[in-house]
Design a protein around this nucleic acid. Structure first.
Lengths: 143, 143
DNA sequence: GTATCTGCAAAAATTTTGCTAGTAT
DNA sequence: ATACTAGCAAAATTTTTGCAGATAC
């Protein structure tokens, strides 16, 4: 029995998600190779196996997978461009539930340092997103 | 003479950008207070002072400001949601020019560590975006 | 059997584009 | 004078929604 199928069904069972055919194929499409796929790219791949699939199903399930922790977002996607006037070095606390963003001064973090320089990439800046749950959301889900 | 105006005109001169009225007001709107504004939010604020402003102008100028380094993006905005199948700890090299994303194993980075815990925020994960220029883009702008 | 999920189509939201007139340098 | 920029309207993208029928548990 193929390993992926086992994994996927197990993952779904753990998180009380229905292991539907569409979800299985979407998951396979995303995990077939490392990459940083957009919903549109995944749609095009999945469509080859399930021509009747709809983009809405891709979106709904990617969201579901991310919320369930089965997949990750590349960087927190805030729905639209977000611009930041603060030019002093700082990073961001990002709440996974309410998507709120809070600044945290860079001096509260040990300086980010590479142990091995990536070949051919000229580093200009480190941006750290600290993902988690803000106090407001923690209270709400506490009871 | 107000400090902001001086700063803004100087910034524009340095980067060979025309210091237009619209840009000045947009810049003031963004820098009035720390925050993480969307184009729509900025539009609503600027509209109070320049009712004839258009959303397109907001978008064009935010993009211009970000490219010029006058403002920062909160986290790299990739145009659409991007999903990542790699669950082993890793971070991302993001090219500012071509927006390409490359994985870098977490063990090539000194572990991210907080010196002071943020009050009330439950940390779940650190995501580091290493911003810079990839080798391909470096070559293109070299000559 | 019941709750959940899919497909569809339509709407909403976000972002880009082309062009003309206006403005900064 | 020249190059750049703003406004406008329209299009292109991206994402969400509501609901009827289908599917998983």
């Amino acid at each position: 029995m193929p390993k992926e199928k086992l994994d996927f069904d197990g993952l779904c069972r753990e998180r009380h998600l229905a292991a539907t055919h569409q979800r299985r194929i979407i998951f396979q499409a995303v995990t077939a190779a490392p990459g940083h796929y957009s919903p549109e790219e995944i749609y095009e791949v999945v469509r080859k196996q399930i021509p009747s699939i709809s983009v809405a199903t891709i979106y709904k399930n990617l969201k579901t997978f991310v919320e369930a922790g089965i997949l990750h977002e590349v960087s927190p996607h805030h729905g639209s461009l977000r611009v930041d006037p603060t030019l002093t070095p700082h990073h961001h606390l990002v709440c996974r539930k309410c998507k709120s963003i809070t600044d945290i001064d860079a001096k509260f973090l040990d300086p980010v340092r590479l142990r091995r320089a990536p070949k051919g990439f000229k580093i200009e800046q480190f941006a750290v997103d600290i993902l988690g749950t803000c106090s407001k959301c923690a209270k709400q889900s506490a009871h």
